[in-house]
Design a protein around this nucleic acid. Structure first.
Lengths: 214, 214
DNA sequence: TTTTGTGAAACGCTTCACAGCT
DNA sequence: AGCTGTGAAGCGTTTCACAAAA
Protein backbone atom coordinates (compact mmCIF):
# COMPACT_ATOMS: atom_id res chain seq x y z
CA UNK A 1 0.00 0.00 0.00
CA UNK A 2 2.90 2.35 0.63
CA UNK A 3 4.51 1.76 -2.77
CA UNK A 4 3.90 4.01 -5.75
CA UNK A 5 1.32 2.57 -8.13
CA UNK A 6 2.60 2.66 -11.69
CA UNK A 7 0.74 4.22 -14.59
CA UNK A 8 0.61 0.80 -16.24
CA UNK A 9 -1.19 -0.53 -13.19
CA UNK A 10 -3.74 2.27 -13.00
CA UNK A 11 -4.50 1.85 -16.68
CA UNK A 12 -5.16 -1.83 -16.08
CA UNK A 13 -7.43 -1.11 -13.11
CA UNK A 14 -9.57 0.88 -15.50
CA UNK A 15 -9.67 -2.04 -17.91
CA UNK A 16 -10.57 -4.47 -15.12
CA UNK A 17 -13.48 -2.26 -14.14
CA UNK A 18 -14.77 -2.32 -17.69
CA UNK A 19 -14.58 -6.10 -17.75
CA UNK A 20 -16.39 -6.39 -14.44
CA UNK A 21 -19.15 -4.13 -15.76
CA UNK A 22 -19.70 -6.61 -18.56
CA UNK A 23 -19.74 -9.59 -16.24
CA UNK A 24 -22.13 -7.82 -13.89
CA UNK A 25 -24.45 -6.98 -16.78
CA UNK A 26 -24.51 -10.71 -17.56
CA UNK A 27 -25.49 -11.49 -14.00
CA UNK A 28 -22.22 -13.21 -13.11
CA UNK A 29 -21.61 -13.05 -9.36
CA UNK A 30 -18.05 -14.21 -8.81
CA UNK A 31 -15.02 -14.46 -11.05
CA UNK A 32 -11.52 -15.84 -10.59
CA UNK A 33 -8.44 -14.10 -11.91
CA UNK A 34 -8.02 -17.06 -14.27
CA UNK A 35 -11.50 -16.73 -15.79
CA UNK A 36 -11.17 -12.96 -16.06
CA UNK A 37 -7.83 -13.37 -17.82
CA UNK A 38 -9.05 -16.04 -20.23
CA UNK A 39 -12.18 -14.16 -21.14
CA UNK A 40 -10.66 -10.73 -21.69
CA UNK A 41 -7.17 -11.60 -22.82
CA UNK A 42 -5.50 -10.51 -19.60
CA UNK A 43 -2.86 -11.97 -17.31
CA UNK A 44 -4.07 -13.75 -14.17
CA UNK A 45 -1.08 -13.28 -11.82
CA UNK A 46 -0.92 -9.68 -12.91
CA UNK A 47 -4.56 -9.08 -12.05
CA UNK A 48 -3.93 -10.49 -8.56
CA UNK A 49 -0.79 -8.42 -8.07
CA UNK A 50 -2.49 -5.26 -9.25
CA UNK A 51 -5.48 -5.74 -6.96
CA UNK A 52 -3.35 -6.79 -3.99
CA UNK A 53 -1.93 -3.27 -3.85
CA UNK A 54 -5.25 -2.20 -2.37
CA UNK A 55 -5.81 -4.87 0.25
CA UNK A 56 -7.33 -8.34 0.20
CA UNK A 57 -10.05 -7.76 -2.36
CA UNK A 58 -10.67 -11.40 -3.20
CA UNK A 59 -11.66 -14.57 -1.35
CA UNK A 60 -9.29 -17.54 -1.48
CA UNK A 61 -10.84 -20.59 -3.02
CA UNK A 62 -13.64 -18.49 -4.52
CA UNK A 63 -12.27 -15.56 -6.50
CA UNK A 64 -13.65 -12.04 -6.54
CA UNK A 65 -17.24 -10.98 -5.97
CA UNK A 66 -18.06 -9.02 -9.13
CA UNK A 67 -20.24 -6.35 -7.54
CA UNK A 68 -17.89 -5.85 -4.60
CA UNK A 69 -14.82 -5.56 -6.78
CA UNK A 70 -16.60 -3.13 -9.10
CA UNK A 71 -17.46 -0.95 -6.15
CA UNK A 72 -13.95 -1.08 -4.78
CA UNK A 73 -12.35 -0.27 -8.14
CA UNK A 74 -14.70 2.64 -8.65
CA UNK A 75 -13.70 3.94 -5.25
CA UNK A 76 -9.98 3.36 -5.87
CA UNK A 77 -10.18 5.17 -9.21
CA UNK A 78 -12.00 8.05 -7.59
CA UNK A 79 -15.07 7.66 -9.78
CA UNK A 80 -17.35 8.26 -6.81
CA UNK A 81 -16.03 11.80 -6.66
CA UNK A 82 -17.85 12.56 -9.93
CA UNK A 83 -15.04 14.83 -11.05
CA UNK A 84 -15.88 17.77 -13.28
CA UNK A 85 -14.15 18.12 -16.64
CA UNK A 86 -13.67 21.12 -18.94
CA UNK A 87 -12.75 20.93 -22.61
CA UNK A 88 -10.42 23.66 -23.81
CA UNK A 89 -11.17 24.50 -27.43
CA UNK A 90 -14.65 24.35 -28.99
CA UNK A 91 -13.39 23.36 -32.43
CA UNK A 92 -14.33 20.13 -34.16
CA UNK A 93 -12.35 18.00 -31.77
CA UNK A 94 -13.43 19.78 -28.59
CA UNK A 95 -17.10 19.62 -29.54
CA UNK A 96 -16.78 15.98 -30.51
CA UNK A 97 -15.10 15.09 -27.23
CA UNK A 98 -17.74 16.99 -25.27
CA UNK A 99 -20.55 14.95 -26.83
CA UNK A 100 -19.09 11.61 -27.89
CA UNK A 101 -21.36 8.99 -26.36
CA UNK A 102 -19.02 6.16 -27.21
CA UNK A 103 -16.86 7.16 -24.29
CA UNK A 104 -18.28 5.63 -21.17
CA UNK A 105 -17.82 8.58 -18.96
CA UNK A 106 -19.12 6.98 -15.83
CA UNK A 107 -17.91 9.05 -12.99
CA UNK A 108 -17.06 12.17 -14.99
CA UNK A 109 -19.12 15.14 -15.97
CA UNK A 110 -18.13 17.44 -18.81
CA UNK A 111 -19.46 20.77 -17.58
CA UNK A 112 -17.85 23.36 -19.83
CA UNK A 113 -16.18 24.15 -23.12
CA UNK A 114 -13.84 27.14 -23.42
CA UNK A 115 -12.91 29.08 -26.52
CA UNK A 116 -11.76 32.57 -27.49
CA UNK A 117 -13.93 33.14 -30.56
CA UNK A 118 -16.82 35.54 -29.93
CA UNK A 119 -19.18 33.72 -32.26
CA UNK A 120 -18.78 30.53 -30.23
CA UNK A 121 -19.00 31.97 -26.75
CA UNK A 122 -22.51 31.69 -25.35
CA UNK A 123 -23.38 28.83 -27.68
CA UNK A 124 -23.43 25.23 -26.59
CA UNK A 125 -22.56 21.81 -27.96
CA UNK A 126 -25.31 19.65 -29.45
CA UNK A 127 -25.55 17.78 -26.19
CA UNK A 128 -25.85 21.05 -24.31
CA UNK A 129 -22.40 21.71 -22.86
CA UNK A 130 -22.05 25.51 -22.63
CA UNK A 131 -19.19 27.33 -24.34
CA UNK A 132 -17.53 30.00 -22.21
CA UNK A 133 -14.93 32.67 -22.86
CA UNK A 134 -11.53 31.38 -21.91
CA UNK A 135 -11.03 34.70 -20.10
CA UNK A 136 -13.57 33.46 -17.56
CA UNK A 137 -11.80 30.17 -17.02
CA UNK A 138 -10.63 30.87 -13.50
CA UNK A 139 -14.01 32.06 -12.29
CA UNK A 140 -15.99 29.26 -13.88
CA UNK A 141 -13.48 26.58 -12.93
CA UNK A 142 -13.91 27.61 -9.30
CA UNK A 143 -17.68 27.94 -9.50
CA UNK A 144 -18.08 24.56 -11.23
CA UNK A 145 -15.28 22.91 -9.29
CA UNK A 146 -13.54 21.78 -12.45
CA UNK A 147 -10.49 19.63 -11.67
CA UNK A 148 -9.63 18.13 -15.07
CA UNK A 149 -8.99 20.01 -18.33
CA UNK A 150 -8.83 18.39 -21.76
CA UNK A 151 -6.65 20.30 -24.22
CA UNK A 152 -8.23 20.27 -27.68
CA UNK A 153 -6.85 23.50 -29.13
CA UNK A 154 -4.45 23.83 -32.09
CA UNK A 155 -0.89 23.04 -31.10
CA UNK A 156 0.27 26.60 -31.60
CA UNK A 157 -1.74 27.80 -28.62
CA UNK A 158 -1.56 24.66 -26.48
CA UNK A 159 1.13 25.81 -24.06
CA UNK A 160 -0.55 29.16 -23.54
CA UNK A 161 -3.84 27.42 -22.72
CA UNK A 162 -2.09 25.01 -20.35
CA UNK A 163 -0.60 27.97 -18.49
CA UNK A 164 -4.10 29.42 -18.06
CA UNK A 165 -5.45 26.06 -16.91
CA UNK A 166 -2.71 25.80 -14.31
CA UNK A 167 -3.30 29.38 -13.19
CA UNK A 168 -7.00 28.55 -12.75
CA UNK A 169 -6.05 25.92 -10.19
CA UNK A 170 -6.99 22.88 -12.26
CA UNK A 171 -5.06 19.85 -11.08
CA UNK A 172 -5.02 17.42 -14.00
CA UNK A 173 -4.67 17.80 -17.77
CA UNK A 174 -5.39 15.44 -20.63
CA UNK A 175 -3.56 16.77 -23.67
CA UNK A 176 -4.71 15.96 -27.20
CA UNK A 177 -2.41 18.42 -28.91
CA UNK A 178 0.77 17.18 -30.56
CA UNK A 179 3.02 19.32 -28.44
CA UNK A 180 5.37 18.61 -25.53
CA UNK A 181 3.72 20.72 -22.88
CA UNK A 182 5.19 21.90 -19.62
CA UNK A 183 3.23 22.03 -16.42
CA UNK A 184 4.32 22.23 -12.77
CA UNK A 185 4.98 18.92 -11.03
CA UNK A 186 1.92 19.36 -8.87
CA UNK A 187 -0.31 19.19 -11.96
CA UNK A 188 -0.76 15.72 -13.46
CA UNK A 189 -0.34 15.81 -17.23
CA UNK A 190 -1.22 12.97 -19.57
CA UNK A 191 -0.66 13.07 -23.31
CA UNK A 192 -2.76 11.46 -26.02
CA UNK A 193 -0.96 12.11 -29.25
CA UNK A 194 -2.48 10.97 -32.54
CA UNK A 195 0.69 11.75 -34.46
CA UNK A 196 2.82 9.58 -32.19
CA UNK A 197 0.24 6.78 -32.34
CA UNK A 198 -0.03 6.87 -36.12
CA UNK A 199 3.73 7.03 -36.54
CA UNK A 200 4.14 4.07 -34.26
CA UNK A 201 1.73 2.08 -36.43
CA UNK A 202 3.55 3.30 -39.51
CA UNK A 203 6.86 2.10 -38.09
CA UNK A 204 5.51 -1.42 -37.66
CA UNK A 205 3.97 -1.40 -41.11
CA UNK A 206 7.20 -0.14 -42.63
CA UNK A 207 9.11 -2.98 -40.99
CA UNK A 208 6.52 -5.52 -42.06
CA UNK A 209 6.01 -6.57 -38.48
CA UNK A 210 2.86 -8.05 -37.04
CA UNK A 211 1.91 -8.24 -33.40
CA UNK A 212 -1.00 -7.08 -31.37
CA UNK A 213 -0.70 -4.75 -28.45
CA UNK A 214 -2.14 -1.96 -26.38
CA UNK B 1 19.48 -4.01 -35.39
CA UNK B 2 18.15 -7.54 -35.00
CA UNK B 3 16.46 -6.85 -31.67
CA UNK B 4 12.80 -5.96 -31.35
CA UNK B 5 12.24 -2.24 -31.01
CA UNK B 6 9.95 -1.50 -28.10
CA UNK B 7 6.79 0.58 -28.36
CA UNK B 8 8.34 3.06 -25.92
CA UNK B 9 11.23 3.52 -28.32
CA UNK B 10 9.08 4.03 -31.43
CA UNK B 11 7.00 6.59 -29.56
CA UNK B 12 10.15 8.48 -28.68
CA UNK B 13 11.41 8.38 -32.26
CA UNK B 14 8.25 10.22 -33.19
CA UNK B 15 8.93 12.81 -30.50
CA UNK B 16 12.54 13.22 -31.64
CA UNK B 17 11.37 13.89 -35.17
CA UNK B 18 9.05 16.60 -33.91
CA UNK B 19 11.92 18.24 -32.01
CA UNK B 20 14.17 18.09 -35.04
CA UNK B 21 11.49 19.74 -37.13
CA UNK B 22 11.53 22.66 -34.71
CA UNK B 23 15.32 22.92 -34.75
CA UNK B 24 15.36 22.73 -38.53
CA UNK B 25 12.76 25.48 -38.75
CA UNK B 26 15.10 27.61 -36.64
CA UNK B 27 17.93 26.96 -39.03
CA UNK B 28 19.99 24.88 -36.60
CA UNK B 29 22.31 22.53 -38.50
CA UNK B 30 23.72 20.15 -35.91
CA UNK B 31 22.61 19.10 -32.46
CA UNK B 32 24.14 16.92 -29.77
CA UNK B 33 22.09 14.48 -27.72
CA UNK B 34 22.85 16.67 -24.71
CA UNK B 35 21.46 19.84 -26.27
CA UNK B 36 18.42 18.01 -27.62
CA UNK B 37 17.76 16.58 -24.18
CA UNK B 38 18.18 19.89 -22.34
CA UNK B 39 16.01 21.78 -24.74
CA UNK B 40 13.09 19.36 -24.96
CA UNK B 41 13.20 17.73 -21.56
CA UNK B 42 14.52 14.42 -22.87
CA UNK B 43 17.26 12.01 -21.81
CA UNK B 44 20.58 12.19 -23.66
CA UNK B 45 21.86 8.61 -23.26
CA UNK B 46 18.41 7.36 -24.15
CA UNK B 47 18.35 9.38 -27.35
CA UNK B 48 21.70 7.87 -28.34
CA UNK B 49 20.58 4.35 -27.48
CA UNK B 50 17.30 4.75 -29.35
CA UNK B 51 19.01 6.06 -32.47
CA UNK B 52 21.83 3.50 -32.31
CA UNK B 53 19.28 0.76 -33.05
CA UNK B 54 19.28 2.01 -36.62
CA UNK B 55 22.98 2.35 -37.31
CA UNK B 56 25.52 5.09 -36.76
CA UNK B 57 23.30 8.10 -37.32
CA UNK B 58 25.53 10.63 -35.58
CA UNK B 59 29.09 11.89 -35.91
CA UNK B 60 31.42 11.54 -32.92
CA UNK B 61 32.72 14.82 -31.70
CA UNK B 62 29.97 16.68 -33.59
CA UNK B 63 26.53 15.34 -32.81
CA UNK B 64 23.74 14.78 -35.31
CA UNK B 65 23.12 16.68 -38.51
CA UNK B 66 19.55 17.94 -38.08
CA UNK B 67 18.44 17.56 -41.69
CA UNK B 68 20.06 14.15 -42.07
CA UNK B 69 18.57 12.81 -38.87
CA UNK B 70 15.14 14.16 -39.81
CA UNK B 71 15.36 12.36 -43.11
CA UNK B 72 16.50 9.15 -41.50
CA UNK B 73 13.78 9.23 -38.84
CA UNK B 74 11.13 9.88 -41.46
CA UNK B 75 12.39 6.89 -43.36
CA UNK B 76 12.58 4.69 -40.24
CA UNK B 77 9.04 5.64 -39.25
CA UNK B 78 7.81 4.88 -42.75
CA UNK B 79 6.57 8.41 -43.33
CA UNK B 80 7.96 8.39 -46.85
CA UNK B 81 5.44 5.70 -47.70
CA UNK B 82 2.66 8.30 -47.34
CA UNK B 83 0.35 5.71 -45.88
CA UNK B 84 -3.37 6.08 -46.53
CA UNK B 85 -5.73 6.25 -43.57
CA UNK B 86 -9.48 5.62 -43.30
CA UNK B 87 -11.68 6.79 -40.47
CA UNK B 88 -14.44 4.38 -39.50
CA UNK B 89 -17.48 6.31 -38.29
CA UNK B 90 -18.53 9.73 -39.61
CA UNK B 91 -19.96 10.89 -36.30
CA UNK B 92 -18.70 13.91 -34.40
CA UNK B 93 -15.43 12.26 -33.49
CA UNK B 94 -14.75 10.72 -36.88
CA UNK B 95 -15.41 13.99 -38.69
CA UNK B 96 -13.26 15.88 -36.20
CA UNK B 97 -10.38 13.45 -36.59
CA UNK B 98 -10.66 13.61 -40.37
CA UNK B 99 -10.25 17.39 -40.36
CA UNK B 100 -8.36 18.34 -37.19
CA UNK B 101 -5.49 20.50 -38.35
CA UNK B 102 -3.81 20.44 -34.95
CA UNK B 103 -2.59 16.96 -35.71
CA UNK B 104 0.53 17.21 -37.76
CA UNK B 105 -0.25 14.46 -40.15
CA UNK B 106 2.95 14.70 -42.10
CA UNK B 107 3.33 11.48 -43.92
CA UNK B 108 -0.28 10.36 -43.67
CA UNK B 109 -3.26 11.00 -45.88
CA UNK B 110 -6.81 10.58 -44.63
CA UNK B 111 -8.57 9.45 -47.78
CA UNK B 112 -11.93 8.14 -46.61
CA UNK B 113 -14.60 8.13 -43.95
CA UNK B 114 -16.97 5.15 -43.64
CA UNK B 115 -20.41 5.05 -42.12
CA UNK B 116 -23.63 3.07 -42.41
CA UNK B 117 -26.16 5.91 -42.35
CA UNK B 118 -27.69 6.67 -45.74
CA UNK B 119 -27.91 10.40 -45.09
CA UNK B 120 -24.17 10.58 -44.52
CA UNK B 121 -23.00 8.40 -47.38
CA UNK B 122 -22.02 10.46 -50.39
CA UNK B 123 -21.42 13.56 -48.27
CA UNK B 124 -17.97 14.71 -47.25
CA UNK B 125 -16.25 16.29 -44.27
CA UNK B 126 -15.70 20.06 -44.21
CA UNK B 127 -12.16 19.53 -45.40
CA UNK B 128 -13.43 17.33 -48.23
CA UNK B 129 -12.85 13.76 -47.10
CA UNK B 130 -15.55 11.64 -48.78
CA UNK B 131 -17.92 9.50 -46.73
CA UNK B 132 -18.49 6.01 -48.14
CA UNK B 133 -20.83 3.18 -47.26
CA UNK B 134 -19.09 0.76 -44.97
CA UNK B 135 -20.39 -1.99 -47.23
CA UNK B 136 -17.92 -0.77 -49.83
CA UNK B 137 -14.99 -0.84 -47.42
CA UNK B 138 -13.17 -3.73 -49.01
CA UNK B 139 -13.44 -2.37 -52.53
CA UNK B 140 -12.43 1.17 -51.62
CA UNK B 141 -9.68 0.06 -49.26
CA UNK B 142 -8.11 -1.83 -52.13
CA UNK B 143 -8.65 0.93 -54.67
CA UNK B 144 -7.25 3.61 -52.35
CA UNK B 145 -4.61 1.35 -50.83
CA UNK B 146 -5.75 2.08 -47.30
CA UNK B 147 -3.49 0.42 -44.74
CA UNK B 148 -4.52 2.11 -41.48
CA UNK B 149 -8.04 2.35 -40.04
CA UNK B 150 -9.05 4.62 -37.18
CA UNK B 151 -12.02 3.31 -35.19
CA UNK B 152 -14.33 6.17 -34.21
CA UNK B 153 -17.65 4.36 -33.97
CA UNK B 154 -19.73 3.84 -30.80
CA UNK B 155 -18.32 1.06 -28.65
CA UNK B 156 -21.30 -1.19 -29.25
CA UNK B 157 -20.34 -1.68 -32.89
CA UNK B 158 -16.57 -1.39 -32.56
CA UNK B 159 -15.73 -5.10 -32.70
CA UNK B 160 -18.01 -5.62 -35.69
CA UNK B 161 -16.28 -2.78 -37.53
CA UNK B 162 -12.85 -4.12 -36.63
CA UNK B 163 -13.81 -7.48 -38.12
CA UNK B 164 -14.77 -5.74 -41.36
CA UNK B 165 -11.54 -3.75 -41.35
CA UNK B 166 -9.53 -6.93 -40.92
CA UNK B 167 -11.53 -8.66 -43.66
CA UNK B 168 -10.76 -5.74 -45.97
CA UNK B 169 -7.07 -6.48 -45.60
CA UNK B 170 -6.16 -3.38 -43.59
CA UNK B 171 -3.01 -4.01 -41.58
CA UNK B 172 -3.08 -1.51 -38.71
CA UNK B 173 -5.83 -0.13 -36.46
CA UNK B 174 -5.93 2.87 -34.17
CA UNK B 175 -8.83 2.37 -31.81
CA UNK B 176 -10.59 5.29 -30.14
CA UNK B 177 -13.48 3.26 -28.78
CA UNK B 178 -13.48 2.25 -25.13
CA UNK B 179 -13.63 -1.42 -25.90
CA UNK B 180 -11.09 -4.24 -25.68
CA UNK B 181 -11.02 -5.25 -29.31
CA UNK B 182 -9.70 -8.46 -30.78
CA UNK B 183 -7.80 -8.60 -34.01
CA UNK B 184 -5.52 -11.25 -35.49
CA UNK B 185 -1.85 -11.07 -34.50
CA UNK B 186 -0.88 -10.03 -38.00
CA UNK B 187 -2.87 -6.81 -37.60
CA UNK B 188 -1.26 -4.15 -35.40
CA UNK B 189 -3.77 -2.69 -32.97
CA UNK B 190 -3.19 0.39 -30.86
CA UNK B 191 -5.68 1.73 -28.36
CA UNK B 192 -6.33 5.35 -27.46
CA UNK B 193 -8.84 5.20 -24.68
CA UNK B 194 -10.22 8.40 -23.20
CA UNK B 195 -11.93 6.51 -20.40
CA UNK B 196 -8.72 4.84 -19.31
CA UNK B 197 -6.84 8.13 -19.54
CA UNK B 198 -9.41 10.06 -17.53
CA UNK B 199 -9.67 7.32 -14.92
CA UNK B 200 -5.92 7.32 -14.58
CA UNK B 201 -5.99 11.07 -13.89
CA UNK B 202 -8.86 10.56 -11.50
CA UNK B 203 -6.85 7.95 -9.60
CA UNK B 204 -4.03 10.39 -9.02
CA UNK B 205 -6.42 13.15 -8.02
CA UNK B 206 -8.21 10.81 -5.64
CA UNK B 207 -4.91 9.92 -3.98
CA UNK B 208 -3.81 13.53 -3.83
CA UNK B 209 -0.70 12.70 -5.77
CA UNK B 210 1.24 15.13 -7.91
CA UNK B 211 3.78 14.25 -10.55
CA UNK B 212 4.15 14.98 -14.19
CA UNK B 213 4.33 12.29 -16.80
CA UNK B 214 3.52 11.13 -20.26
C1' DT C 1 -9.71 -28.49 -3.45
C1' DT C 2 -9.74 -24.06 -5.20
C1' DT C 3 -7.87 -19.65 -5.70
C1' DT C 4 -5.88 -15.77 -3.58
C1' DG C 5 -1.78 -13.08 -2.04
C1' DT C 6 3.22 -12.83 -2.23
C1' DG C 7 8.34 -13.41 -1.99
C1' DA C 8 11.68 -14.62 -5.39
C1' DA C 9 13.24 -15.15 -10.15
C1' DA C 10 13.18 -13.50 -14.71
C1' DC C 11 12.86 -10.08 -17.83
C1' DG C 12 13.29 -5.70 -20.20
C1' DC C 13 14.07 -1.01 -20.16
C1' DT C 14 16.87 2.84 -18.53
C1' DT C 15 21.00 4.82 -16.88
C1' DC C 16 25.76 4.96 -16.53
C1' DA C 17 30.60 5.20 -17.66
C1' DC C 18 33.87 4.99 -20.86
C1' DA C 19 36.08 3.20 -25.10
C1' DG C 20 36.36 4.65 -29.74
C1' DC C 21 35.98 7.99 -33.53
C1' DT C 22 36.32 12.58 -35.50
C1' DA D 1 38.84 18.03 -26.90
C1' DG D 2 34.06 16.63 -27.99
C1' DC D 3 30.41 13.54 -28.58
C1' DT D 4 28.73 9.21 -30.17
C1' DG D 5 27.97 4.26 -29.61
C1' DT D 6 27.83 0.50 -26.30
C1' DG D 7 28.67 -3.17 -22.72
C1' DA D 8 27.55 -3.43 -18.02
C1' DA D 9 25.07 -2.03 -13.93
C1' DG D 10 20.81 -0.58 -11.99
C1' DC D 11 16.05 -0.52 -11.53
C1' DG D 12 11.24 -1.37 -12.03
C1' DT D 13 7.78 -4.44 -13.83
C1' DT D 14 6.14 -8.93 -14.97
C1' DT D 15 6.00 -13.76 -14.27
C1' DC D 16 6.39 -17.67 -11.51
C1' DA D 17 5.62 -20.99 -7.88
C1' DC D 18 3.84 -21.89 -3.68
C1' DA D 19 2.27 -21.00 1.06
C1' DA D 20 -1.95 -19.54 3.22
C1' DA D 21 -6.77 -19.31 3.57
C1' DA D 22 -11.62 -20.52 2.63
Amino acid sequence: MSTQISEATTNRLSVYLRCLNKLDAEGIRTVSSKVLADRFDLNAPQIRKDLAHFGELGVRGVGYYVKDLKRQLRQILGLDLHLKVAIMGAGNLGLALADYSGFRLEGFKIVALFDNLNEKIGQQSRAGVPIYDIKDLRRIAMREQIVIAVIAVPFSSAQEVVDKVVAAGIKAILNFSPEALRAPDKVKLKNVDLTVSLESLSFYLARGMGGNSV
